[in-house]
Computed example of a mutant assay.
Amino acid sequence: MFALRSTARRGWSLRGCAQLRSVSTLDGNPHIYIFPSDGPSGSHILSLLPTEPVNSKLAIGVTSKLPITTDSVRENPKFLDILQDVFSKHAHEDPDAQSQAQVMVSTAGANLYSGGVLQANRRKSKRRADASDSSGGASGQGGVGSAGRGGWIHISDGRRPPDYGRIAWPEDIFGSLEVDADGQFVGGDGNYQPSGTYRLVTRDGILSISPFLREKLVQRLKELEKE
C-alpha cells in the first residue's frame, strides 16, 4: 500500500570528510522516516524525526511489514498524546483553520481542506447521511448558510479531503475548534476538543498533517528528544 523511497542525508566521518547515507521514507509522505526495529524480523519504526538511533518513545509507531497496511501498524499512544497536546496549543494558529473559520461564518460555504465544519448548535450534532455516503452535508454542519452563527470546525487529516459541503470521516478528524459569530476562535484558542475517533492509518493512507501543524509537532518532538 505504501512504498518506500530513499533520500540521501549528509553525515561526517571521523576524518571530517562528507559522506552520504541513505534514509528511507514513505513514498508519497517524505516526512515519515523508516528505521529497522530491534523487534521481530522485518519490523520497522516510523518517525517524524530523522535522528539515529531513533527514539521509539517519540516514534509514530511500529509496522510489522512494508509496504504498510491498515493492520500492520502498532500505534504509539505517547506520540498521539504529544500530537493532541501540540494541536491544543497551536491548531487555532494554523492558516488553514483560520481560513476555515472565516468561511464558516460567511455565505460562501465551508472550507473543507481541514475537514469541514460542525453545526452551530452542538446539541443537534447528529450528521445527516444518505445510504451511499456517511459524511455529513453542509446543512447538518453549519457550512453553507451558517453565516453569523458560529459553531465548530474540524481539524482533520489531509489524506482524504471531503467533498465540498461535507465533513471528514470520523477516523480522519483530530479534533474541533469553536468559532464565534464573527469567525474568531472562542477564548482566543478555540477551546480545542480532541475527537477521540482519529485513526493513524486508514485505507486512504497514514498520518498527513498540514505543513504548519507538522512543523509545530516536529519542533515539540525535537525538544522532547533533547530531554
Rank of each mutant, 00 (worst) to 15 (best):
P50A: 11
G196Q: 01
T69K: 13
S43N: 07
D172I: 00
R149G: 00
D163H: 12
S6F: 12
Q119M: 05
I173S: 01
G28M: 08
G116K: 10
I45S: 00
E227N: 15
G150Y: 00
P194R: 00
R214L: 14
V54R: 04
F87C: 08
P161V: 14
E227C: 13
D189P: 01
E75D: 13
E52Q: 10
G137K: 13
G196Y: 02
D189R: 14
S135T: 14
P50L: 05
P77W: 03
Q84G: 06
G165K: 02
E93L: 12
L80T: 05
A147W: 02
K124E: 09
H90R: 09
I32S: 04
E75S: 10
P53H: 05
A101Y: 01
L83W: 06
Y113S: 12
E178Y: 02
F212I: 03
K65W: 08
G205F: 09
G165P: 01
D133A: 10
N55P: 03
Q193D: 02
Y33T: 01
I32Y: 04
I32A: 03
A110V: 10
K89T: 09
L58S: 05
S176H: 01
K226I: 15
D71C: 05
H31G: 14
G165A: 00
V54P: 02
G158W: 13
L207G: 04
A59N: 02
T69G: 15
P162L: 02
K89N: 08
P30H: 09
L66T: 04
T107Q: 13
L200I: 07
Y33F: 15
